[in-house]
Amino acid sequence: MMTQVEVTEVLLPGVGVRYDFTTARGERFAVVTRRSGDVEFMDYGDDPDAPRPLWRLDAEEAEVVAEVLGAPRIAERFADLTKEIPGLGAGQVPVTAASPYAGRALGDTRARTLTGASIVAVVRDDTVVASPRPDEVLQPGDILVVIGTHEGIAGVQSIISG
């Protein structure tokens, strides 16, 4: 993936990780993610030795921000990722109201056993359930992100649409 943002990762032993960003406009800022899940944003301004604190988010708030920024793009990103491996593909399988599995647990589909393809995420409105567990209940309108061979993805499609 091409990107304009330069990111460096610095380990903070005992605390977490600091990510330094330099944007295309030359602005420098840092995001410190704590082991606890808390996140702190700092702005370096023109003096790299005097970062100014911007915001502090707790784990839940950080999650919300991440979802706002990340959810709509997750399926695209999987598609990019799977291009790198020959034979592997990513697909999106919608769960319609007519599907026999709407309102049932993901595990009931036995999709992986039957097709070999994995359901790696469920996109629901603006949120993403990453690595859904077998007891995740599918809702009408959900979009399943599937990774597998092309036959496998087609198999999941036919299972879900019934």
């Binding site: 610095v10 380990l11 903070l12 032993p13 005992g14 605390v15 977490g16 600091r18 840092a30 410190v32 702190e40 700092m42 370096y44 790299p48 030795d49 970062p51 604190p53």
Partner: peptide, 28 residues
């Protein structure tokens, strides 16, 4: 004191500072 130092870095909001990884590495 790892306890006192870690707390200070947090209270004084120095976690993103350039010198902080060095301080934490010495403690580890």
């Amino acid at each position: 004191s790892s306890g006192i130092v870690a707390r200070l870095l947090e209270d004084l909001r120095r976690l993103a500072n350039r010198e902080t990884p060095a301080v934490l590495s010495v403690l580890v």
